[in-house]
Design a protein around this nucleic acid. Structure first.
Ligand SMILES: [Mn+2]
Ligand SMILES: [Mn+2]
Ligand SMILES: [Mn+2]
Ligand SMILES: [Mn+2]
Lengths: 219, 219
DNA sequence: ATATTTTGTTAGTACAATCTAACTTGTTAG
DNA sequence: CTAACAAGTTAGATTGTACTAACAAAATAT
């Protein structure tokens, strides 16, 4: 009953509203590269179907049912990414486009089997949480690396957002989830950060990078 | 360029024309459960695209390009079925509906990886051949069990067509690919066949069943 | 050989998902 | 505060995939 197209709108809205609680027609339009009038009429349709709170000229919100539907699609996306990396030997920067398609497969058995073969993982290969089968997503209280201070020792827990280009950049720096970083200095001018980790010389990470790295301080 | 819908038409036409070399609008209509006028206009469209030879009131054929496209979709379908059975532990009667969806995924890397992980299989879980990456499908010269004679000893090589119901029936009889069957008698009235295999009492198979079982005589 | 049935085609309609152009509402900069 | 700009909406067109109704051709039965 929910088309692939509708699923992509729900997912976009879920991700855009995740922090602020609401999103605009314009944001969805940019995210999906679909013109605003198209987004507008789709929002009305999803509102008719009970997935979106729509009022003219007001920001958009998902209903509880919309949130659940979206989270279940994200669950399929992230389980798929995890499966591709863990069981099919893909790299973490190769899985998004495939998962973008497989998330629309209608087969509870298929995803249940994936989940089981993976041992019921709670995060995807980029550290993002996998919603449970009721669409409930646990949120961890990680902090972004660009909010840390000199002397902090932290573990890399997630990359968000995880564009292919960023992931490939992190590959070249041998930075992966679980890596422990020590912050040596912070350049006041551009907020770039010098860190060390593993058996390698210190690395400088720009603020564009540190703003995407979620870490947990070692307590 | 080729939509999911078009892919399903190409695949239907390929399978229908596989034996006779041609098929009718009516056959595709029944196979896909889509009304004849819709099939008719889709055939014209696929003809425009160079995949189908269409002439009013004449039977339909695939062009060479159409055959190749169809075979490559069937390749993805059968690789997927094999992967689901071999690597994800699904039963042979559970995989068709999932493969019917995954066959439309656009990702050469995904199917190349499947192929590699499976060790480049040549047949799917129902014994049907998997076309190669150029869309070439090798045909084995198996014979249907209902053409065998008393005293023949044969190996079950494929089930065709392999409906879920038939596969489940074969499960109850412990009949699987590779099973060696000895033909004890053939009932002239209804052409049912009594066979023995493994450590079990003789079984009677109706002609509805034997007409779907492809076997290779043990020479 | 003709009548009946089946198959194939044409014409017109519907719905989903997209677009552009034009208009309205809301926001922001002087 | 108002003018300009950005965002949102409405209206109308387009494309893809489906349908029904009506008609034409081919196959079949009498
Ligand atoms: Mn998607
Ligand atoms: Mn991810
Ligand atoms: Mn299909
Ligand atoms: Mn099969």
């Amino acid at each position: 009953m929910i088309s692939q197209t509708e699923e992509n709108y729900l997912k976009a809205l879920y991700n855009l509203t995740y922090l602020k609680g609401e999103a605009t027609v314009n944001e969805i339009s940019k995210r999906l590269d679909i013109k605003m009038p198209t987004v507008n009429s789709m929002m009305k349709k999803l509102s008719e179907k009970g997935f979106v709170h729509y009022e003219s000229y007001k920001p958009l919100k998902l209903t509880e049912e919309g949130k659940k539907e979206a989270a279940l699609i994200i669950r399929k996306h992230r389980l798929t990414e995890m499966y591709l990396v863990e069981k099919m030997d893909f790299a973490w920067d190769e899985v998004h486009q495939i998962a973008e398609q497989i998330e629309h497969i209608h087969s509870p058995e298929f995803f249940t089997k994936m989940d089981q073969l993976l041992g019921y993982p709670t995060v995807d290969p980029h550290g993002s949480p996998i919603p449970d089968h009721n669409g409930v997503m646990r949120s961890e209280n990680y902090i972004f690396l660009d909010t840390c201070e000199i002397g902090d020792v932290v573990t890399l827990m997630a990359v968000q957002p995880s564009s292919k280009e960023l992931l490939q950049y992190l590959n070249t720096k041998n930075l992966e989830l679980g890596t422990t970083l020590t912050i040596h200095s912070i350049e006041p001018f551009d907020r770039s950060i010098t860190v060390s980790y593993g058996n390698r010389p210190a690395e400088v990470l720009s603020s564009k990078v540190t703003a995407t790295l979620l870490v947990r301080p070692i307590s």
